[in-house]
Design a binder for these strands. Structure first.
Length: 317
DNA sequence: ATGGACACCTGTGGGC
DNA sequence: TGCCCACAGGTGTCCA
């Protein structure tokens, strides 16, 4: 479910509450949500409790919280709690005692920087998402691992230790189109080399990250491209146009708090985003194309759906 | 390299 | 009301 705009909405919501918060307790209601954690439930709890959250960082659809271990246990470890929302994950901020969240899998209790007691709840219907402790390793390009909140420079004027690091489990994810170090030439070169359909390439998190089924369909609709058009067949102008649309759509969706159309995407306060009203293709099967009036079609594609205008988005060549 | 199938899961809505 | 099927914002792996 959540793609870059939804994950960024969550990140931006978590950051003010969790930065410099100290974890006091962890409750694991369903161990399957920790399946990507090497070491089991007790190990996860032992590492988390007492640690301080230094920031909330995002690349593509991955989020991580660099952790400062309590003194005496710090050693040389550079670690973070890595979270992924999968298809149905939510990260909610609650005050203790709030009881309305169904399908809660993990609760992290913490004392915020201002002294308030807060709860971070990981809610996930399908359990494709996960939380895990992971090692932070240097980024391949030596640049910041992801987007955070301008906390890169510490109070001493130096870069914080976690800035140019990335969780080992997310190191294969390339930069997303909203990353200030996004390498457009790298992506355009990949397009030229790939004969796969352009939608498949847009969804490949090792080509560019953050795009999922909604925003792929939306970007292709705006660019008048068919999902199976080979990436290598795009002209340079078409490829650049497509990336411009991708950026524009992602930025607009972030500004509107993401896309919500059921109970499966909510921000940290349990509220829906507003981008759904801007959708032109995704989920619009059978409604008139807003450009030409032809009915939007849904094709089964890669075990999911592809929504497009059969007239505006014809396969060419 | 590339495409396809499938595994991991639960919940909802439509048709009969 | 119940049952069955299709479908859902993702990722990783295995196989032709």
């Amino acid at each position: 479910m959540p793609e870059l705009p939804e994950v960024e909405t969550v990140r931006a919501g978590l950051a003010p509450a969790l930065t410099n918060a100290v974890i006091t307790a962890v409750e694991v209601l369903d161990a399957r949500s920790l399946k990507r954690h090497q070491g089991g439930v007790e190990d996860f709890k032992a590492t988390m409790v007492g640690s301080k959250i230094l920031a909330v960082v995002r690349r593509g659809k991955f989020l991580w919280l660099p952790l400062e271990l309590p003194s005496g246990r710090s050693g040389f470890h550079q670690i973070a709690m890595v979270g992924h929302l999968g298809m149905s994950g939510q990260m909610l901020l609650r005050t203790p005692g709030f009881t309305d969240d169904k399908l809660t899998r993990v609760i992290v209790k913490a004392t915020a920087e201002d002294g308030e007691e807060i709860e971070f709840r990981f809610v996930d219907q399908r359990i494709f998402g996960s939380l895990a402790i992971d090692e932070l390793i240097p980024t391949a390009d030596g640049l910041p691992g992801g987007f955070s909140d301008g906390l890169e420079i510490g109070i001493d004027g130096k870069l914080n230790w976690w800035v140019n690091l990335i969780p080992a489990s997310a190191a294969h994810i390339t930069r997303d189109p909203l990353d200030q170090h996004f390498d457009q030439k790298f992506v355009l070169d990949k397009f030229k080399k790939k004969n796969s359909g352009i939608k498949r390439v847009l969804l490949d998190q090792q080509t560019l990250s953050g795009i999922g089924n909604i925003y792929a369909d939306e970007a292709l609709w705006r660019s008048k491209l068919h999902y199976d058009q080979p990436a290598s067949s795009l002209s340079s102008a078409q490829a650049r146009d497509l990336l411009a649309h991708v950026r524009e759509i992602l930025a607009k969706a972030v500004a509107e708090g993401g896309t919500s159309f059921d109970e499966q995407y909510k921000n940290v306060n349990g509220e829906s985003g507003y981008f759904a009203v801007s959708l032109n293709a995704y989920g619009m099967t059978g409604t008139p194309c807003k450009r030409c009036g032809t009915l939007i079609k849904r094709d089964s594609w890669m075990n999911r759906g592809s929504h497009f205008c059969p007239k505006c988005q014809k396969l060419k060549g």
